Lab assay of single mutants.
Amino acid sequence: MGFKLLSKLLVYLTASIMAIASPLAFSVDSSGEYPTVSEIPVGEVRLYQIADGVWSHIATQSFDGAVYPSNGLIVRDGDELLLIDTAWGAKNTAALLAEIEKQIGLPVTRAVSTHFHDDRVGGVDVLRAAGVATYASPSTRRLAEVEGNEIPTHSLEGLSSSGDAVRFGPVELFYPGAAHSTDNLIVYVPSASVLYGGCAIYELSRTSAGNVADADLAEWPTSIERIQQHYPEAQFVIPGHGLPGGLDLLKHTTNVVKAHTNRSVVE
Rank of each mutant, 00 (worst) to 15 (best):
G2R: 10
E80L: 04
G32E: 09
V11N: 10
Y135L: 01
S27H: 12
R128V: 11
A178I: 07
H260R: 11
I58V: 15
I100H: 01
I40H: 07
V171G: 02
G169F: 07
D164I: 06
S62D: 10
V171K: 01
D216A: 08
F236K: 09
N211S: 05
P69E: 15
A259R: 13
G123L: 05
E157R: 11
F174Q: 02
Y175M: 03
Y34P: 10
T207E: 15
D77E: 09
T36V: 13
L13G: 07
V187Q: 00
L243C: 08
N92I: 02
L5H: 15
Y231N: 08
H241L: 02
L73A: 04
K8A: 15
F168Y: 06
D214H: 10
R128E: 11
I227P: 00
L247A: 14
T140L: 04
E80S: 09
N92S: 06
V257L: 13
R226T: 07
D125H: 11
T134R: 01
T153F: 12
L10I: 15
I186G: 03
F168M: 11
P244V: 07
L73P: 06
I238M: 08
S62F: 05
G53T: 14
L243D: 15
A51C: 05
A178T: 07
S193H: 11
D118S: 11
G242S: 05
H154V: 09
A25I: 13
G240K: 03
E80F: 07
T93R: 00
L185F: 05
V124Q: 03
M1C: 05
D125A: 09
P232G: 12
G210D: 04
G2C: 09
S162Q: 12
H154I: 11
P190G: 08
G105C: 06
T36K: 12
T254Y: 12
T253D: 03
I20K: 15
R128K: 12
L81N: 01
H57I: 02
V75S: 03
D79C: 06
L24K: 12
I84H: 00
S161F: 12
I100N: 01
S193V: 07
V112K: 05
A192V: 13
R141A: 08
S27M: 12
R226S: 06
T253R: 02
Q61L: 07
G53E: 10
V212W: 03
G242N: 04
E145Y: 14
D214L: 02
L243E: 15
P41Q: 12
G197K: 02
P107R: 14
H154M: 12
E267Q: 12
P107V: 13
Y231T: 02
I227E: 01
L10A: 12
Y68D: 04
G43N: 11
V124I: 10
E145W: 12
D77G: 09
S27P: 12
P190M: 07
R120S: 11
L9D: 14
A94H: 11
T86E: 00
A130Q: 13
D119F: 00
L73R: 02
K91Y: 10
H154L: 12
P23Y: 11
G105P: 07
L204N: 10
S155C: 06
L106A: 11
R226G: 04
A144W: 04
V237K: 02
D85W: 00
V194P: 00
I84G: 01
L5S: 15
D183Q: 01
H115L: 02
V112L: 11
N92K: 03
T182N: 13
Q235K: 09
A59I: 07
A90T: 10
P152A: 03
E39F: 10
E33S: 09
A178K: 13
V112W: 04
Y196K: 00
A165S: 14
D79S: 10
G72P: 04
G65T: 08
W55E: 02
S56F: 14
H115I: 00
V187R: 02
A59C: 06
Y12T: 13
Y202H: 14
F26Q: 15
G240M: 05
V194C: 01
E225T: 11
E147M: 14
S16E: 08
A25M: 15
E39D: 12
G240Q: 02
E157D: 13
I17S: 13
Q61A: 13
I74Y: 05
A209R: 10
Q103W: 11
